[in-house]
Design a protein around this nucleic acid. Sequence first.
DNA 1: CGATTCGTTGACATGCTTCAAACTTCGTGG
DNA 2: CCACGAAGTTTGAAGCATGTCAACGAATCG
Lengths: 250, 250
Amino acid sequence: MLMQAKNNHMVQECHICEPRGGCLGLQLLDSEEIRQQLCNTKRISRKGEHVFREGEEADAFFVVRSGSIKSYLVTEDGEEQVLGFYLPGDVFGLDTSEEQFRMSSAITLETTSLCRFPHAYLGDKAQGSNLLKITAEQMQRDHNLVLMLARKDADGRIASFLDDLACRYWSRGYSASAFLLTMSRQDIGCYLGLAVETVSRTLTRFQDSGILQVNRREVEILDHDKLRKIAGTRASGSQSHTRTVELKPV
Amino acid sequence: MLMQAKNNHMVQECHICEPRGGCLGLQLLDSEEIRQQLCNTKRISRKGEHVFREGEEADAFFVVRSGSIKSYLVTEDGEEQVLGFYLPGDVFGLDTSEEQFRMSSAITLETTSLCRFPHAYLGDKAQGSNLLKITAEQMQRDHNLVLMLARKDADGRIASFLDDLACRYWSRGYSASAFLLTMSRQDIGCYLGLAVETVSRTLTRFQDSGILQVNRREVEILDHDKLRKIAGTRASGSQSHTRTVELKPV
DNA sequence: CGATTCGTTGACATGCTTCAAACTTCGTGG
DNA sequence: CCACGAAGTTTGAAGCATGTCAACGAATCG
């Protein structure tokens, strides 16, 4: 809250985008004047508040400064499918329909601070390759999720999930071996296509194997190598139902 | 536009992009000269040829004129995961990494004719919203796939898959009730996260139920309503493991 | 301090994978 | 043109991973 005293130039104070090659605000927004606009549209939300909902008009995307976000959509049956979790430094809200409507909903998992990038303020060059690069991250994430859901068993999914979280925390300067799960078991299950009970059981089993220590939402990874090994393993023991790729000469 | 007069070029002969509001070449490419380039880079490939491979440099994206394409990636285990199938009128090849490398491979499922859009030839406005709109389609597809994999059982996945194909053929002027599966059972399994045997069995069962008629790769849908009903059904009978969404007041 | 949500654990049911084998189609070379 | 093998498809039997149901304990909240 003390930071707000100097918020006339808050953009410079934020280092969350450093792994992206510097503040996105400076990269994407046109003028100094507009960059200050960015500061003014910074949002702080408490746990459980929606940033946007599926179907709403999309006039901006966001960067997580602190906290975490759950992205999800609702099926015809009125149930939710979690599409991903966003940690500090992540960009979200770029998945919109052709008509600029939200294709998913986003909700805070804890007290969360966001940077808001209104489409209207984006500079010309922002419309181009820079933005496409960010959508590339989203597509990469989607591919990974598809891969997990289609090819991995419960153990592999949970292990991949934890490994992914660890890597992302690590890349942002946090500990890769000990962190907090900001989402519920339910959320994890909805994300990985598993029942809550399976999530719980798998975590317990991992703990019994000495791979990690888990207490409610606190996780400490003890054997990252083993975790990675499980994460990389495909669904079945022997040859899977899927095709082993033959590399044809070009 | 004045291109209607110039009949000697391929661009105006192609009507595949009509549901998209007219030829993408006319929409995205800068000058008449470049549009002719587009014609020159039209490709025809026989079955089983790669359009591009994961990791290659990406300098263009494509539109399917005729034929069909399978998009896939290879896991650490050296096996493939199918990400989608592209039919005439579909755009593919937009999913590239930040550094403009291919995030997936694309291979023809039959003799296929493509329209090639080199990034270098794209006009300024093409870099902006137009292109983002097309990536939106891709994200929508990814979301649907995630939904299928995480929430639907074998019946639901196969039914959704067939319904999706039918709709896409329909929207392009082909029959929605009778069409050819250009991909193998293996491909379908790799796409839906199912074993080949499950795909085969499910199709047979659907046939026995009078929902459709299937003979090798020829499919005729007899009861589209029932198919849709199965497609929309979630994995389990009673309440699923996933959360039923409660609509909080905004 | 109840009420509610969340997390854990056990017993059981089942849908899908796996394994095995036969059949069909297709391509290729004799 | 036929013979032959490779690949694709179908069907059956059996095992197992995961979902389902149920109950309990722990944490959170008003």
